[in-house]
Simulated scan of single mutants.
Amino acid sequence: MKNNLEDLHNHLFAQLERLSDEDLKGNELTEEIKRANAISSVASQIINNGNLALNVGKLKYNDQIQKTPKYLEVKSV
């Protein structure tokens, strides 16, 4: 997977644009709202996971912890 936070940012703004479409009415609007809620929920979890990894990286950098699970390691770019 090659998505990053910039991609997430772009997806969220694209969703906002779809929700702002004044021609969307009835079932189409209802479906777009459901999609927006799902995207928002997933986005929140991605952000929470990123914050967790960042906090673990800070703790490791400050020698407050020695070992971290591989999935929480922050990779340098």
Rank of each mutant, 00 (worst) to 15 (best):
K25P: 01
I46W: 03
N55A: 15
Q45G: 01
N37R: 15
L59G: 03
Y61H: 11
E17I: 14
D23K: 15
N10Q: 06
M1T: 06
I46L: 15
S40C: 13
L24Q: 14
S44F: 07
N48S: 14
L24A: 10
V42H: 03
L8V: 04
D21I: 01
E31W: 00
H9T: 06
A43C: 02
Q45S: 12
Y71P: 00
K34D: 06
K25V: 13
H9R: 12
G26Q: 03
L19R: 05
R35D: 04
L12D: 02
N48M: 12
K2C: 03
V42R: 07
L8H: 02
A43F: 02
A14S: 09
G50C: 05
I33L: 13
K2Y: 03
V42W: 00
E28K: 12
I47V: 15
E73M: 03
K25A: 07
L5R: 05
Y61I: 04
L72P: 02
M1V: 09
N3L: 06
N4V: 00
G26F: 10
E6M: 05
L19Q: 14
G57H: 06
L5N: 06
A14K: 03
E28A: 11
S44D: 09
E31Y: 08
N27E: 15
L8P: 00
L16V: 12
Y61F: 13
L19P: 08
E22L: 15
